[in-house]
Amino acid sequence: MSKPHIDVRYVANLARLELNEAEVAEFQGQLDAILGYVETISLLDVSGIEPTAYPSPVFDRMRDDEPHESLPLAAVLQNAPDQAQNQIRVPKVVADA
């Protein structure tokens, strides 16, 4: 089996994470070493074994669909880095016509 290798810059972009050159260099060796270790599970035969997503015997439960009070607007907006007219302001996302 070939040695596992992460394309750090490509994956960081998928995660919407800017990295500087020093970080790419540092993470490359560390992440390849971690992945190399993780390969130990590839040796295990798991054919016919069901995956476990949650360790609880009960999941996918819904609470009753009853209306209840939401957080007040001021509480929702209090942590927004930028806001205007009771809304969160973001950079323009559509191009000029």
Partner: peptide
Amino acid sequence: PEVKRRIILGTY
């Protein structure tokens, strides 16, 4: 750095 490492590993 540790959070970034785990985000990259998890995304991968």
